[in-house]
Computed example of a mutant assay.
Amino acid sequence: MDLKTLKTFQMIVKYSSFVRAAKEMNYVQSTVTMQIQKLESELGVQLIERGNGKEFRLTEAGRLFHDQSLQIVKNMEQIQTNLSNLQLGETGHIRIGVTEPTASYRLPGILKGFMSRYPNIRISMEFANTPMLSERILRGDLDFSLCSAPDLGTDFYFEPLFKEEFVALMPENHPLALKAVLSPEDFRGHRLLITSGTCPYRRKLEMVMQETGNLTLDTMEIGSMTALKFFVESGLGIALVPKIIAEPVSAGTTIRTIHGSLIHMTFGLLCKASAYPPQLAGHKLYLYLKQHLKEQSF
């Protein structure tokens, strides 16, 4: 029993005619007759009672089979459509990981446009830092991530998409607010609000500080990059934050640019080396993100 045979049976019932069913299905009438005979043989019951001439009627089994086969055909057609859309990348489920501030400040508007264009693609997002997202990718829990470059390794493919510009955010009456541009050496003697030890930018900051010989910073660790601005507003210290977070500047605070290697950090797409480029629906999302994130970068 196949889908074509079920459709033929339904056409016969719909038009009460083998001849009309054959015409609608673009078959010769003998093909329609053979299909119904084969169907009845497979089911072991008679579905149609033929009368004199072209007259026929459904048996009780035929009526039951017709009623229940309507949903079967509908489900099979939907499955075929879904599989076709899947192959075209028009449907599917994509699991992505994202770091802040990309997750909160860049993605919502981009994903709104993507999901309007591809309403049948479902997206799940997980927020974490780059090391955690890297582990999740290797375990197969995520398809790809938007984050900073991972530690060196051959298991990953990383494609830079945009640069996040960082600025120094501080209370407007802070002594460093008197300078237009800051350098890492300027932070000596001032409390610096920093992210957790697993944050790639924190590690970059520490490396720069070691290069300048500034190893005695007064620091206060704040676990969330997006929370830093609120601690600055409270006057607890200064923080190096992505410009996209700092602007618009809150009342009582101000920002200063930083020169040197602290001024930006590269973010991009991270996935298994064996999974690049993403396929099907993932490829649609990858191309869309690549286009729209690069418009905000470099």
Rank of each mutant, 00 (worst) to 15 (best):
T195L: 03
F231G: 04
L228G: 02
G197Y: 13
D141V: 08
Q35P: 05
I48M: 06
D151Q: 14
F56N: 03
E77L: 12
I244D: 00
G53H: 07
Q296G: 01
F231Y: 15
K229Q: 15
M132G: 11
L43F: 05
F127H: 07
T5N: 04
Q78V: 08
P242F: 01
Q291W: 10
I48T: 02
G62W: 02
G252Y: 04
F231Q: 12
D67I: 12
V232T: 04
S183Y: 14
K14S: 10
R122I: 15
T130F: 00
R122S: 12
K179D: 11
F156R: 03
G140A: 06
N173E: 13
M11Q: 15
E55D: 13
S69P: 03
A103Y: 03
F230C: 00
R63I: 14
A251G: 06
L138I: 10
R106M: 15
T33H: 15
G92H: 01
T226A: 10
L111F: 04
S250D: 10
P101Y: 02
L169M: 11
F231M: 12
G153W: 05
L133D: 01
T99S: 08
H66S: 11
P101N: 03
F56R: 03
K74W: 07
I48S: 05
L70W: 06
F158R: 05
E233F: 07
G140Y: 08
M132W: 06
Y27W: 12
R95C: 06
M125Y: 04
V28Y: 11
T198P: 02
I79W: 09
T257Y: 12
L86H: 07
Y27P: 04
E233D: 12
S124R: 07
T254Q: 08
N129A: 03
L58R: 06
T257R: 11
D218G: 00
A149N: 06
V249K: 07
H93Q: 11
Q46S: 14
L152M: 10
L262I: 08
G282N: 02
L64V: 15
K112H: 09
L293D: 03
F166V: 05
R20W: 07
M225P: 00
L64P: 01
E40A: 08
K272D: 07
R188C: 08
P277T: 06
F231S: 05
N129C: 07
L269E: 01
T195D: 05
A168P: 04
M265K: 11
M34A: 14
Q291D: 14
S41Y: 10
K54H: 12
F158V: 02
L6E: 10
I244S: 06
S134G: 09
K14H: 14
